[in-house]
Amino acid sequence: MKTLVLSKMDVPGLVEALGETARLIGPRKKEHQFVFGQITKPEQLALEYPTTILPPSRQLFPNDEPLVRLRLDDVAASREIVEGEKTILLGVHPCDVQGINILDEVFSDSPPDANYLTRRSQTIIIALECQAPCSPYNLCFDKGTYRLEWGYDLLMIDLGDRYFVFTRTGAGEELIGDLPFFRAATPADREALGRARETQAGSFKTRLAGPVNRLPNALKEAYDDLLWEAVGRRCLSCETCTNVCPTCYCFDVADEVELDLVNGTRCRQWDSCQSCTFAEVAGGENFRPRPSERQRHRLFKKEVYQYEKYGRSACVGCGRCSAQCVASIRLNEMYNQVLGG
């Protein structure tokens, strides 16, 4: 691991240099909010952003992703589409890096998903630590996702006029290579880092009424609680909570046909366990017909099922589902309700 320093004055130069080596994706302003998008000019980059509408993990798992090239007249002519190009994700917050780590685990699990992994294997992540929580709904302090141990190639920490930069992987070091924008960190930089980290730690607070490691059991005990009914009454089944989640990966597959009625593409679309038809079988039986059951499933998938399978939660505490819910369904409130605040 190397410790380096990047002056904020040099960020535009860095953006141009990185843009020449790969497709550069970073936070951009959209109206009064932010989105991850391609950065072709330094002024598009908005590194000082609270959060984005969609998480950066969606860049690796795009909606309407082509999977198979089809010939309607010849099934034997079906050809796989596995795409990926060298991509740099710049300015990814720690919770969102953890979101990508979780998708990595899910899509690497047997049988591995070549479409995701091919794209992922060509992606470099430059993480950016947050200095303060971005919304009242963050659970990143409780979840321990406000800082990062792994899962990134480079990590930047804001020191005011400059960024402290950790390299984590060979790919990260290679990316920096001989770029003139970085210098070795000095004792003064390290001291500044220490102070920044102290301020940062003071600004993040516990939001939950109990420790997060109690969530799996607390939720299981609450399986038949009226809480779900109460949430279900408000839920609009609009699927926003899952679409904005960094770790949701459910999908549907559908064929698109060209007007020649000969060529087509089998594509993968984001889908959601909150959709009223998600668990419906062809015969019409619906195994999760009620919004209350679907909301419960969402939380259980994050905190119970993935905990049992992978030994970790699949909620990174980013707060997007709560912040963007039109019906004001708040994950932190529900967690507190089951933790028995």
Partner: peptide, 14 residues
């Protein structure tokens, strides 16, 4: 970069 075993580029969907 993701460290995984050599990735099979074979799509499971064909």
């Amino acid at each position: 970069m993701l460290d995984t075993a050599p990735i099979s580029r074979k799509s499971l969907f064909v």
